[in-house]
Computed example of a mutant assay.
Amino acid sequence: MKDHEDTAPRFAICLNNTNYPASLERHNVYQVIFDKEVEQDGDIRVIDESGEDYLYPAEYFAVIALPPAVERAILQVS
């Protein structure tokens, strides 16, 4: 069985989009895809503006907790 950490939606707000202005918008909320290996390397996997998941420096984001209703709304749009 997978850990809850693997399946629960996580979200992060972009604090820095240096080198990625077309893919990331500062202050936007992005869905995080759990990827233990890349997180150990200091990266984070997010679904960016293209609608695909890519790796970015974790320091560019702050992982945030959202109320369940907000999570549902974001996931319905994605």
Rank of each mutant, 00 (worst) to 15 (best):
L75D: 00
T18D: 13
R72S: 08
R72D: 09
G42Q: 10
Y30P: 02
V29T: 10
P21H: 05
K36I: 09
G51P: 09
N16I: 11
T7G: 03
Q31I: 10
Y54R: 09
A73G: 06
H27K: 12
A65T: 08
Y54V: 01
L24Y: 04
S50L: 14
D6A: 11
R45H: 03
V63Q: 14
S78F: 07
F34Q: 04
P67H: 11
N19W: 13
K2H: 12
Y56N: 00
P57H: 10
H4F: 15
E49A: 13
V38D: 08
A12N: 03
D41Y: 10
R10T: 03
N28R: 11
E5M: 10
A22E: 15
R72M: 08
E59A: 08
Y60N: 05
N17T: 03
D48S: 03
S50M: 13
R72Y: 05
L75C: 05
A12E: 07
Y54E: 12
R45E: 06
V46A: 07
K36V: 06
F61V: 01
P57M: 13
M1K: 04
K2V: 15
N28T: 02
A62D: 09
I64C: 02
Y60R: 02
E52M: 08
P57K: 13
M1G: 07
A8W: 07
V29A: 01
L66V: 04
G42A: 09
V63F: 07
V38C: 12
T18C: 08
D6N: 09
L55T: 00
D3K: 13
T18W: 10
A8V: 13
H4Y: 15
Y56V: 07
R10H: 05
A12L: 04
P21N: 06
K36D: 11
I47N: 00
T7Y: 12
Y30M: 06
H4Q: 10
I47Q: 04
T7V: 15
E25F: 04
A65I: 06
L24N: 03
Q31S: 04
L55C: 04
E39S: 10
N16C: 14
V38L: 13
A22G: 07
K2E: 15
A8P: 00
A73C: 07
E52S: 08
G51N: 09
D41C: 10
V32Q: 04
S78N: 05
I64F: 01
P9N: 10
E52P: 00
S23G: 08
R10V: 00
A8Q: 14
